[in-house]
């Protein structure tokens, strides 16, 4: 339906019709061919290949290897249980804290902007900078912060508030996992902040004002007006943060490389370590398939829960 055709007077309309090209034949696949070829080569092929490799005894040195279920049977012996536990801890805490921190920082910034307080741009830039820095460099920076002696800055700050000045941030297995998670929260909060900031800008200000006038408590405004408006943004955000965190490799590789021992070895790292550390392509591929499945299952689970929630609300 064209607006132009409607508004053009009859006589000229006839002429326009004559000039109108015959319904053109589009060739969408011709236009999309480059991206399709690239995505087949770099996504479709590797996905099929990683599944195939997981059913072989392949290693990096000798090529193919025969088909076998050995890699799948070896998952348990290769520590799948503890790797999943580490991954769940790392991803779970990262999601919870990134979303909470990111949401409240965004809320604070939007409120500060409404009041035209100076400094909100500085705060926003500071948070976003953390997100722009390469993950490897973030790992290196936090390694420097976690320096394990009383000349390390975090150890020093801990001693100032009455804590130990010798926290084994990276050398104790349990502490190291917490350290890695904190560094990741520092890194990832910005993304949630940016998305929530955008969502919060769409909350209609007059409704919020009216609620305040009617004496609604701030918490009830947050719950009944703000949260429902930004809900779709929070959902997109939850999915993006989950997938990003599940697939984190660079920051941990630089910070601990999975150590000490295997105490910070999340799924993505285990794939790399098995393939390139131990040359065991088949087993590494099986872990890769597990990583893909975890991503898919979690995202599908979110979507199912959200759809169900929508239906009961409707």
């Amino acid at each position: 339906m064209t607006l132009t055709a409607k508004t053009v007077p009859r006589t000229r309309a006839a002429r326009a019709n004559a000039r109108r090209p015959r319904p053109r034949r589009d060739h969408p696949y011709l236009w999309l061919a480059p991206s399709i070829v690239l995505l087949v080569a770099v996504f479709a092929y590797p996905i099929v290949e990683i599944v195939r490799l997981s059913f072989t005894g392949a290693n990096l040195v000798g090529a193919n290897g025969d088909y076998t279920l050995h890699s799948w049977q070896a998952l348990g012996a290769q520590g799948l249980g503890s790797i999943l536990g580490i991954t769940v801890f790392f991803v779970g805490l990262s999601i919870v804290f990134q979303m909470l921190l990111g949401f409240f920082i965004a809320l604070m910034l939007v409120e500060a902007e409404k009041r035209r307080l100076v400094g909100s741009v500085v705060t926003r830039t500071a948070v976003m900078t953390a997100w722009a820095i390469p993950g490897v460099i973030i790992g290196i920076i936090w390694r420097l912060l976690y320096q394990e002696s009383d000349s390390g800055i975090l150890n020093y700050l801990s001693s100032l508030v009455g804590g130990s000045s010798n926290i084994p941030f990276l050398s104790d297995p349990h502490v190291a996992l917490v350290s890695v998670t904190i560094a990741n929260i520092w890194r990832g909060t910005a993304l949630t902040m940016i998305l929530c900031y955008a969502g919060l800008k769409t909350v209609p200000n007059d409704i919020v004002e009216a609620a305040h006038m009617d004496g609604a408590a701030p918490f009830s405004v947050l719950r009944n007006i703000i949260l429902p408006t930004v809900r779709p943004v929070l959902v997109v955000n939850l999915i993006i943060v989950t997938v990003e965190t599940l697939n984190t490799f660079d920051m941990i590789e630089a910070l601990t490389a999975g150590g000490p021992g295997t105490s910070t070895q999340v799924l993505a790292l285990s794939v790399y370590n098995l393939v390139f550390g131990q040359q065991r392509l088949g087993v590494g591929a099986a872990f890769g398939v597990v990583l893909m499945l975890v991503n898919v299952v979690v995202v599908v689970a979110y979507l199912v829960i959200i759809n169900r929630g929508e239906r009961t609300r409707a």
Partner: peptide
Amino acid sequence: MDFKGSKVYERAILACQMISPVILVVALYP
């Protein structure tokens, strides 16, 4: 453009974003 595969193409684009680059390069490496 209206074409049959456009939904499939869009879904594939979204699905691609769930795959870790580690997996891609491990499979491409050999």
